[in-house]
Write a protein that binds this DNA or RNA. Structure first.
Lengths: 141, 141
DNA sequence: TTCGTTGCAAACATTTTGCAGTTTC
DNA sequence: GAAACTGCAAAATGTTTGCAACGAA
């Protein structure tokens, strides 16, 4: 039996924060972003609500970048580019994973494919054009 | 100045363990695997050596699955299938990411692409053929 | 004998969770 | 008023690190 869900302002704000950006934020980023507007927000609440959104399919995970899980309010499958230097996650909307590949994967493994993720890694425009060693901004971990 | 590297039996064993399997193991798995043969092995050593292998390009990461980083002794880029139920990571050698996609990603982002990772998710053959709810083996986390 | 390697345990960073108080319905 | 939601802090988890002992060159 599922739990009834009540409305919550903080939940709304968290979802809006994730869906209103293309930065593919981490929980910490969302928290920092909202903290000024909602001073009594706690990080645990951000994590709890992110968990709900994921179960409900409202957001999805882009994976772990530099030790931080990154989320995406755009649940339509699409390709990403991850900068190895600054940790930025960019959308690459121009590309799609060919359906034939998915079919081929199913027949090759004998399993059922329900999703796929294609991501390129390298240096983003900003990091490439500058001395890469000076721009390890989000590499912190 | 780089550090001179000395020979080490434990290091050999760890690398062999990773390269001698297609399970795409986690550090913990490697540790458990070797512990019976090398009783005085410690988990920290496994992590330390995995770090070295990565720097040297001898192994690479497949990503984080259920909170555990998984490694691959096969550094030739290839496609993976990740079972959402049991956490198994399988190779899908039949498929390759078309070179055209990489080029397209570079021109779309303006950055430099140095690697790419394509992975499908879903239910592997074993988990699909049985009641999936009874087979959440590695979902532990 | 030198210096890299290791075990051990403590430290870390991220995420989860228990509980008491608060908000929503 | 019942049940979900939240802050807080503690716990859990996976990984890293400092240090003294150990092992390879």
């Amino acid at each position: 039996m599922e739990k009834a869900r009540k409305h919550s302002r903080k939940r709304d704000a968290i979802l809006q924060c994730i869906c209103g950006t293309t930065t593919h934020p981490s929980a910490e980023w969302v928290y920092a972003q909202l903290k000024s507007d909602i001073p009594d927000l706690s990080l645990g609440t951000v994590y709890r609500n992110i968990g709900m959104f994921r179960e409900e399919g409202k957001i999805c995970s882009v994976g772990v970048v530099n030790g931080l899980e990154r989320y995406d309010g755009n649940t339509v499958p699409h390709v990403h580019f991850i900068c190895e230097s600054c940790g930025a996650v960019l959308d690459v909307d121009a590309i799609e994973v060919p359906l034939t590949l998915r079919k081929a994967a199913e027949s090759a493994t004998g399993g059922r494919v329900s999703g796929c993720s294609l991501s390129f890694s390298g240096l983003c425009r900003n990091c490439e054009s500058s001395d890469s060693s000076l721009h390890k901004i989000n590499t912190t971990k």
